[in-house]
Design a binder for these strands. Structure first.
Lengths: 160, 160
DNA sequence: GCTACCCTACTCGGATATGGAATGTCCGAGTATGCTCGG
DNA sequence: CCGAGCATACTCGGACATTCCATATCCGAGTAGGGTAGC
């Protein structure tokens, strides 16, 4: 029960993209240098976000990644699911259906109370993540540490 | 972001132990045969529960595992944490502290809003799991499928 | 018949393989930019 | 001076290694129970 390292990287990357002027792209090598991360691997993670429709990519000089839609409409859950996959974290294999003389017609995953408990807990987790948008986090961070945005944006733009 | 297979097995095992008469132990080979699971591996998972103080073990003939305390005082969260480890699922490495000219005195993990969001979501998940006890699940399952308890207990006791 | 001892079989416990996913790296495909050359 | 064409460097994109952890297995340590022999 561990999330990949890329989740933290991806959310920070999205916040930075929310800060950069519209129409500009942030390239992954520059982002990786800023946070001291393996560049090619960060690139791979951002590709997953493109595949999920969270980011758009631009090739060539002055290329990079930018948000595919307005940051108010991108939730933290979107980013997490893009990287970790949409399937539930709890693996229920319905072992109740393996017992001797089990009723083959019954849906043991649906009716199993343990499975229901796990699904409900995971729903609470997802709802909490869905309540936070990239825009909300970006705004809060800027209010709390105004100089951080300035520093990040100027550093990332220096790649020109 | 996946839980191990053993979580489902362990919770079902605990429910069965809540059903067995007090003073008797359930051995892992019999449990594994009932649910068609790899016996030695189930044994290993239950060992983790012993290490965490959820189960007690008894060696030798008529040996096995039994709950270490009353099933009303064992939550699903206890079982999950015993197997997956108590540390948070979200790995925050505080990459904000890696940026150039970062303030080394500041605790970036504590103040990072992304980290806070993740911690809050995970707290909701844990609270949902902590609300469900083994006793509660066992009672509900018995109310809904009364014959299942009879079948399981008699099968497991047949190892005598 | 009763008791003490030993032997056996059974179960946990941890050390030991294996496979697959997460992590990390590398090179090719495609494109915008800027330069060059001709009109 | 202006515009079209081309060379170039830059960035993404996916194919290719490597490391680590979940999964699975096996054998030794310890124990309870029963059988046996002696009193």
């Amino acid at each position: 029960m561990k999330t990949g390292r890329g989740v933290e990287w991806a959310v920070h990357s999205c916040v930075n993209m929310a800060w950069t002027p519209a129409g500009e792209a942030v390239n992954s090598a520059r982002l990786a240098a800023y946070y001291k991360l393996p560049g090619a691997y960060l690139n791979k993670q951002l590709q997953a976000l493109v595949h999920a429709g969270v980011l758009d990519s631009v090739s060539g000089p002055r290329g990079g990644f930018h948000l595919a839609r307005r940051p108010e409409h991108i939730t933290v859950l979107d980013v997490v699911l893009a990287l970790e996959g949409p399937e539930p974290a709890f693996r229920c294999e319905g072992i109740l259906g393996n017992v001797p003389d089990a009723d083959q017609e019954q849906n043991y995953v649906r009716t199993c109370l343990i499975s229901q408990t796990m699904r409900q807990a995971e729903l609470a987790w997802r709802q909490a993540l869905a309540r936070q948008t990239i825009a909300g986090i970006a705004d809060s961070m800027e209010r709390r540490f105004p100089q951080d945005r300035v520093k990040a944006v100027s550093y990332l733009a220096a790649g020109t």
